[in-house]
Design a protein around this nucleic acid. Structure first.
Lengths: 203, 203
DNA sequence: GTCTATAGCCTGATAGAC
DNA sequence: GTCTATCAGGCTATAGAC
């Protein structure tokens, strides 16, 4: 399912193209660049993919394949709603926090995706996770907000933490702990669950 | 201060280039495209800007100039910490929520900015706002988290709400209210201030 | 399946007339 | 300050030999 009938060279092409597209974007990468990374000429790429746009789409598909299989198991382990929230946050961090390439690709697609590529991201990642986490979201929303907005808020908090990194690291008060994914998961879970109201007792 | 000695044509060039750069990115826009929008030829652009990279930088500078002047007054009006949080969220929404161009430019810079352009964004926007809102952030953090992370979380929640819009609108449970900026500000303020803990009384 | 060669186009930038 | 004309280089993609 992951690589449906790709030849060895085709896989090498996909894997070579992904870091390039992630770092410099679609327009910033030439077919020559990809070919050079693989160790062939640009013309040879066309034996495996019909053109640049197809190659980009297949690379995106390849990158986002099979990233969502772990959520159900992760959520089963958690007992109370607080730790279920914490698991959901950890899940997003595992997908997008650790993988610079996946995160950059998503970020670029948020600006440039056409309908077809949006569908890909939705079907492969966001809709499955939405369905699997909906129960927890409803439980956490608890009638005060809706699960749709909460889903986006949680995802947004995780994504923006890494996305804002170039700015964050140049702001006063940076600490080494802010780069630790476990610490960030704790921070976000605490922030969302306990809130900021100072009239409440500290956890 | 806003346009330091730019000629009328130079301003027209800057203003014509911004929507293009925002929509298609640096590599996606040709000097000819900008010239055509202004109504001149590409060669004439070089009488006003020394090259494409300079034009892009000046356009960025022009777009982000004088966006941060309103914060101090806005925060003075608010009395309690809850409404100060709400004001801070509204401030970010005013800057980035209403202006697709500014938001797209920022989003692209988060992926592609070099050191010089990051400094521009920091000096013009993020450092001033950080300094002006630091007091409130410390008050809101209340010893449970640090103001640095809280600053990023609030900014990230606002940015990601708009940034994730193409995905959000294709997820189940979308409502028209989710496009209303006041409603979003309320939602985010409530989420951050009250938290998700179901054991607490509803506001 | 890979190569070399090249077509056909678009790109940023410059020269020089007006 | 704007124009026309043009250059030199990079781009995707194809043709055809091996």
């Amino acid at each position: 399912m992951n690589s449906p009938g790709y030849s060895k060279t085709a896989v090498k092409i996909l894997e070579a193209s992904l870091p390039l597209f992630a770092a410099r974007g679609y327009n910033g990468v030439a077919m020559r660049d990809i070919a050079q990374t693989v160790g062939i000429t640009a013309a040879a790429l066309y034996n495996h993919f019909s053109g640049k746009e197809t190659l980009y789409f297949k690379a995106l598909e390849y990158a986002f394949a099979g990233k969502v299989n772990t959520l159900a198991e992760e959520l089963e382990v958690a007992r109370d709603s607080r730790s279920r929230l914490r698991r959901l946050i950890s899940f997003w961090i595992e997908i997008f926090g650790g993988d610079v390439i996946l995160r950059s690709l998503l970020q670029r697609e948020m600006s440039d995706a056409d309908e077809q590529r949006l569908r890909l991201l939705l079907d492969r990642v966001f809709l499955p996770v939405y369905e699997e986490s909906k129960g927890i979201l409803v439980e956490l929303a608890h009638g005060r907000t809706d699960e749709h907005l909460l889903f986006c808020a949680i995802l947004g908090l995780v994504l923006s933490h890494f996305q804002l990194a170039p700015i964050r690291r140049r702001l006063p008060g940076t600490r080494v702990e802010h780069e630790d994914v476990e610490g960030i998961a704790d921070h976000l879970a605490r922030l969302l669950f306990d809130g900021l109201d100072p009239d409440r007792s500290r956890a």
